[in-house]
Simulated assay, not measured.
Amino acid sequence: MKKDFYEILGIAKNASEAEIKKAYRKKAIEFHPDKNPGDKAAEEKFKEAAEAYEILSDPQKKAKYDQYGHQAFDGAGGFGGGHMNMDDIFSQFGDIFGGAFGGGGFGGFGGGGGQRRAKGSNLRIKVKLTLEEVANGVEKKVKVKRKIQAPGVTYKTCSSCNGQGQIMRVTNTILGRMQTATTCPTCGGSGQAIDKKPNNADAQGMILEDETVSIKIPAGVVDGMQLKVSGKGNDAPGNGIPGDLIVAIEEVEHEFLKREGENLHYDLYISFAEAVLGVSKDIEAVNGKVRIKLEEGIQSGKILRLKGKGIPSLNNYGSGDLLVHVNVWTPKNLNKEQKKFFESNLVDENFIPKPEKSEKSFFEKVKDMFS
């Protein structure tokens, strides 16, 4: 089971952006590969800290994590902020280390003072899910058009940066000479330039190719949630790191059921006679029909709660409920005999409304629903 991101960095949930950054820098320096050569345990902790920082340093990702936990990103199929390699970490967060390691260098992994591997661009798609698929989880196969390195492409050392991936510039300031490193504009930081390429490849040696990607979507996702499939975006030139495939969830509206978080709502309409006499009804649930029994004299507005018949929690905290809203349908067109029956009972005490003290008002029911 994954550790809590706040626990990994040793911070509270209400930690500020500066506190999160400070905590990550402390952990990253403590477990940095240059300080712990050959120590696999330290390397794993270094990656854990980077994964925690990637999520908690982004306000939107942090909000999703606070609400849904690891499942908001990891899911069942390898989604999420994690699964980063060393090149990912140094290319994204290298500036945080400052001069902690020999003027900004990061050994053989790349970073502030050495060559780093370029990362390909991300791709984004939208996947539509039915309510049944949301409730049960689903594996989707989608066709993605992504850039890959063309066969036959060869590279040579970039002449602009001599394979370093960065251009060093020295400027004179009132404080003295300052040296800064910027990503090489020629090779994009890869340290390599194209030597030969086929005619059908673009200037970066890439071609477009269709690929079928299998996406395992966990149960309980919500509309608008974004999942990440690592390495299924566009390739990067040379020996770069492929980008990611970002999957946006779009929930298709159900014909009968309305979703509210993990709970589902169903409007059940019954006749006046059924309300008086009581009846058994088949209710449309997310995994098939459910039979319920309505007692004699049930009132319109009654809400029946079917435990565990809603949507599963992303955090494996069980499932929501199915709330059945009973609505008594009042007939609009009656024949003479039917009208005569009701007219004869207008003053009958059995037909006079006598709400019990325990019966909640409409406004109380609305208040309960949203609390």
Rank of each mutant, 00 (worst) to 15 (best):
Q149M: 12
K140M: 14
T130K: 09
G163V: 00
E48V: 02
G94T: 03
G137H: 00
G120I: 02
M168Q: 15
K47Y: 08
E51A: 10
K128C: 15
K140S: 09
F101T: 08
L123F: 10
Y155N: 02
R116S: 15
S159A: 13
A49F: 00
L131A: 01
Q166P: 06
G78L: 11
H70V: 01
K128R: 15
Y53P: 02
G81M: 05
A135L: 02
C158L: 03
G111R: 15
G114E: 15
G120K: 03
D87Q: 14
G107Q: 13
G75N: 04
G152F: 03
F106N: 10
K141T: 14
A50S: 04
K145F: 10
K119S: 05
G77C: 07
D95T: 15
K61A: 07
G137S: 00
V134H: 05
D58T: 04
G103Y: 14
N136H: 04
I96H: 12
G108E: 06
Q166A: 07
F79L: 08
K62S: 11
V138W: 00
G102Y: 15
G137A: 01
K62H: 10
K119T: 14
D88P: 08
Y65A: 01
K64W: 12
E51N: 09
Q92E: 14
V127K: 08
I96Y: 11
G77S: 03
I96F: 13
G111C: 10
A118Q: 15
F97P: 02
A72T: 03
D58V: 01
R146F: 03
S91W: 10
R124F: 11
G98T: 11
F46R: 00
G113Q: 13
L129C: 06
A49Q: 01
Q92T: 11
L129K: 04
P59D: 07
Q115E: 09
F93D: 10
N136Q: 02
A52K: 07
A72R: 07
G108Q: 11
E54W: 04
N122K: 05
M84S: 03
S57H: 03
K156C: 09
P151K: 13
G98H: 09
M168W: 15
S57D: 08
F79Q: 04
A118P: 13
K126T: 09
G112D: 12
K62L: 11
K126P: 00
I125K: 01
K145S: 12
D58P: 07
I89R: 00
E133V: 12
G108V: 09
G120F: 06
K147W: 14
S57W: 06
A76T: 05
S159H: 13
V138Y: 01
F109A: 05
D74L: 08
F46H: 06
A50P: 00
A100M: 14
K140R: 11
K156H: 08
H83Q: 11
K140Q: 14
G112K: 13
G114M: 09
P59M: 10
C158S: 00
R117W: 13
V134I: 11
G114T: 15
G78N: 02
Y155E: 00
F90I: 06
A52V: 12
I89D: 00
Y68I: 04
S91D: 08
F93M: 12
D87T: 13
G120A: 05
K156I: 06
E132W: 06
D88I: 09
K141Q: 13
G94V: 10
G102A: 15
H83F: 10
P151D: 13
G113V: 09
D66P: 12
G98P: 07
P151A: 05
